[in-house]
Simulated scan of single mutants.
Amino acid sequence: MKADQIIPVLRIFDYQKALEFYRDWLGFEVIWEHHFAENTPVYMEIKKENIIFHLSEHHGDGTPGSRIFIWGEGIVGYYKKLTEKPYKYNNPALEKAFYDAVCFQVYDPFGNVIIFNEKYDEIEHKDLEFYSIH
């Protein structure tokens, strides 16, 4: 079997809060939205480059508190861009993970967590300041 695309479905509870977090802060674009009728829950697709999520207000679609782990490139630049934007509900910290990665986590308003990871490079990342709980 070969998967062409994997699209996580994340449970949301508030359309406006979802837009504020995913579109306005993280920089995703809304590709499409679906409602079965007027004044019914939304099911929508959002995208940022090759990352695609489905967000659903429907009961039973996804579990609040899900975690999504993303490997990529340019994570440090993206982190810096995010931390320069005013978003009062998140203050991510750059970390060096035990699995040899530079990473940071963001928490959406519904308890879901997205972990952005980039392979640690001793030359490229040598001057970074990392958050440490020790």
Results as ranks from 00 to 15, higher is better:
11 R>T: 04
45 E>Q: 14
108 D>M: 08
62 G>W: 05
61 D>K: 10
50 N>E: 10
11 R>M: 01
76 V>R: 08
23 R>A: 02
85 K>V: 02
17 K>S: 01
95 E>G: 09
89 Y>R: 06
45 E>R: 13
114 I>D: 02
15 Y>S: 06
67 R>Y: 03
112 N>H: 04
57 E>F: 09
90 N>C: 03
48 K>Y: 12
28 F>H: 09
28 F>V: 09
96 K>L: 15
47 K>V: 09
87 Y>E: 01
133 I>D: 11
60 G>Q: 03
84 E>F: 01
40 T>R: 14
131 Y>M: 05
4 D>I: 10
21 F>E: 02
125 H>P: 04
27 G>E: 05
126 K>P: 03
76 V>C: 07
96 K>W: 14
58 H>A: 08
28 F>R: 14
101 A>S: 14
48 K>G: 05
5 Q>K: 14
2 K>R: 04
16 Q>A: 06
112 N>V: 03
134 H>S: 14
109 P>G: 02
52 I>K: 06
6 I>S: 09
70 I>A: 06
38 E>N: 09
116 F>V: 08
129 E>L: 12
18 A>T: 03
128 L>A: 13
50 N>S: 10
104 F>Q: 10
70 I>V: 11
125 H>D: 08
36 F>T: 15
124 E>C: 05
49 E>C: 10
64 P>D: 07
114 I>T: 04
